[in-house]
Amino acid sequence: MIKLLALAGLGYAGYRYYQNQSSGSSVAFAGNQSGKTIRDAGPEAMRSEPTRAWTKTDEESDQSFPASDPPANY
């Protein structure tokens, strides 16, 4: 029983450590977006360049995120 409790405690400690390390990650943010929790819309706010040309629809979809509805002209 003690071994099971010790294993559960280690698992919980590992989970909390992982959560603390991953919460400050800014993978999708460009260099000028430091200190923010939500990325600005547009390709200039992305860390890597888009793989294709950025269209008006892409811009409007990015601006509406995380809203559940797409832009009116989607």
Rank of each mutant, 00 (worst) to 15 (best):
M1P: 12
P50W: 03
A13I: 09
Y74H: 00
G14K: 05
E59M: 14
Q19N: 12
A6E: 12
R52P: 00
E44W: 01
A41D: 10
S68N: 12
I38M: 08
R52E: 04
S25R: 08
S26N: 15
G24M: 04
N20L: 14
Q33M: 09
Y15P: 01
S48G: 09
D58C: 07
A72H: 00
A45D: 01
D40Y: 09
Q21Y: 13
R52W: 04
Y74P: 00
S25G: 08
S34I: 02
A53T: 14
L5K: 10
L7R: 07
R39C: 02
Q19W: 03
S48Y: 15
A72D: 12
S64W: 06
S22F: 07
G31F: 03
Q33Y: 05
G14S: 03
K3G: 15
G24H: 14
K3N: 15
E60P: 00
T57G: 12
N32L: 01
Y18V: 11
N20P: 00
L5S: 08
T55S: 09
N20Q: 14
A67S: 07
Y18W: 03
Q63M: 12
E60T: 07
N73T: 06
A45T: 06
P50Y: 04
Y74C: 09
R16D: 15
S23I: 09
Y74W: 02
R16C: 11
S48E: 13
A41G: 03
L7C: 01
G31D: 06
F29Q: 00
L10W: 10
R52I: 02
I2T: 14
P50H: 07
Y74I: 08
W54V: 05
S34W: 02
P70V: 04
R16A: 15
L4M: 13
D62N: 14
P71E: 06
S68G: 11
A30F: 05
Q63S: 10
K36A: 04
V27I: 14
G42E: 06
N32A: 11
Q63V: 13
G9M: 09
P43N: 11
K3Y: 14
F65N: 06
Q33F: 04
L4V: 14
A8T: 09
P71L: 01
D69R: 05
A72V: 06
A53I: 08
M1S: 13
A45Q: 10
R47D: 10
Q33S: 05
F65S: 12
S68Y: 04
M1L: 10
N20G: 06
Q33A: 10
P70R: 08
A72M: 01
S34G: 04
G35S: 02
G31N: 05
K3A: 14
R16Y: 15
F29S: 03
E44V: 08
D58H: 14
L4C: 14
G9H: 00
R16M: 06
Q19D: 15
G31K: 02
S22A: 09
A28G: 06
S61C: 12
L4G: 00
G14H: 02
I38P: 00
K36G: 01
P66M: 01
S68Q: 07
S34A: 15
N73S: 13
